[in-house]
């Protein structure tokens, strides 16, 4: 009769263990998990003088250069980029206005997005800062993430031959990501 005592207790103990439960929780909330980092990343920079124009030719008014930007159309960016905000800062100490264009192209050189920035003339001892913010979202993001290279063109409003001063470009992009399952 005595041996039934521990048997009953053991039975209760094992039952107790299996009675443990998880409640007041909702694992379907994983559907609502959104990781939304905001990433600041330098973009393009350059520092040009009149010599940069004349290296191409006397009275040359246009500079152009191209770089790949492969991560713009990679799968992660296409899936998760919600918004991109480009910030451009041009410091001009040349007495000439410029027009700066950023063309976002794909492999077939088809343009998907264009940013145009007017740059005001400055003076050697009194450089003028031109700032531009380009906020891209919704359809703009779809277009932007179809591109994988950037062409930067700078067009002077008049000849820059033998002018002193520089045109300094600094830029960054703020990427707003939204990562969901």
């Amino acid at each position: 009769m005595k041996k039934k005592f521990p048997l009953a207790l053991i039975f209760i103990a094992v039952l107790l263990f299996f009675s443990a439960c998880i409640k007041d929780t909702d694992f379907n909330q994983t559907d609502a998990i959104e990781i939304t980092p905001i990433i600041e990343l330098d973009f393009l920079f350059s520092n040009i003088t009149s010599q940069t124009f004349t290296d191409i030719g006397i009275n040359n008014l246009v500079l152009s250069d191209t770089t790949n930007f492969n991560f713009l159309n990679d799968e992660f960016t296409v899936d998760n980029l919600e918004r991109a905000e480009f910030y451009f800062k041009n410091t001009n100490s040349m007495p000439v206005d410029f027009e700066m264009k950023f063309q976002f192209l794909d492999d077939n050189n088809e343009e998907h997005y264009l940013i145009s920035i007017p740059i005001i003339s400055g003076e050697l001892n009194n450089p003028v800062i031109s700032e531009h913010i380009e906020n891209i979202e919704t359809d703009g993001i779809i277009s932007l993430t179809m591109a994988n290279k950037v062409v930067l063109s700078i067009e002077a409003s008049s000849s820059v031959d033998n002018l002193e001063g520089t045109l300094k470009l600094q830029s960054k992009t703020t990427y707003y990501l939204k990562i969901i399952q």
């Binding site: 330098d42 393009l44 290296d55 250069d65 770089t67």
Partner: peptide, 23 residues
């Protein structure tokens, strides 16, 4: 230290490719 991509605007002859900055 990364500070973005610097564009140099080199004079290019016919058929010359732009520098492979990104790569």
């Amino acid at each position: 230290t990364l500070d973005g991509i610097e564009l140099l605007f080199p004079p290019l002859g016919s058929g010359e490719l732009t520098p492979t900055y990104y790569d």
